[in-house]
Amino acid sequence: MKKLVITAAVAALMAGSAFAQNTNKEAGTAAGIVGGATAGAVVGGPIGAGVGAVVGGALGGALTPPPPEVVTYVEQQPAPQSVVVQEQIVVGQPIPSAVVLTPVPQNPRYAYAVVNDHRVIVEPQSRTVVQVIN
């Protein structure tokens, strides 16, 4: 049973990384698989790795990058004061609650902030980072 779960997790990782070269959504799936497998292995060993890979892949693939017009809008706005946080800002993770978000008027599904001198596009309901603009 353990071999089957480990084999499935490895196959999922390989398939996810091959597809990840095509689009951002697929990259999110691959990152979710890897992150989920790692976290699952720490908590539940080989079986946890398999379960974590599946769950992480599903969650990572659900993250949708913002449309180009949202990115352009955020890039063209005067930069608000940059907030400095100790946490690393990572796509797919929530932004700290201390960071004030500015809504994107043309698309209320997105908001932005400047954190650690980087513009960050966020899904405001969950505060999940969807893109970091360098």
Results as ranks from 00 to 15, higher is better:
Val120Trp: 05
Ile47Val: 12
Ile47Phe: 08
Ala8Gln: 10
Val91Asp: 03
Val115Lys: 07
Glu69Trp: 14
Phe19Cys: 12
Ala39Gln: 00
Ala37Asn: 04
Glu69Gln: 15
Thr7Cys: 05
Ala27Val: 00
Ala98Phe: 00
Glu69Ser: 15
Glu69Arg: 15
Ala37Arg: 03
Thr38Arg: 07
Val100Asp: 11
Gly56Arg: 08
Pro66Asn: 10
Thr7Ile: 03
Lys2Asp: 02
Gln77His: 08
Val120Glu: 00
Gly28Asp: 00
Val114Gln: 03
Ile89Leu: 11
Gln88Phe: 05
Pro80Lys: 12
Ala41His: 04
Ile133Met: 09
Gly40Pro: 03
Ile6Tyr: 14
Leu13Phe: 05
Ala27His: 01
Ala37Gly: 14
Gln93Ser: 09
Ala8Glu: 01
Val83Ser: 11
Ile47His: 08
Ile6Asp: 10
Pro94Asp: 07
Val129Gly: 02
Val99Asp: 04
Val91Glu: 07
His118Asn: 09
Leu4Ser: 13
Val115Ala: 09
Tyr110Ala: 08
Gly40Glu: 01
Pro46Asp: 10
Thr64Ser: 03
Val71Tyr: 00
Glu26Ile: 05
Asn107Ala: 15
Tyr112Asn: 04
Thr64Trp: 00
Leu101Asp: 11
Ala11Met: 13
Ile33Trp: 00
Gln106Lys: 09
Met14Asn: 04
Pro68Gly: 09
Val122Tyr: 12
Pro78Cys: 07
Ile6Thr: 15
Thr23Ile: 01
Val43Glu: 04
Ala15Cys: 00
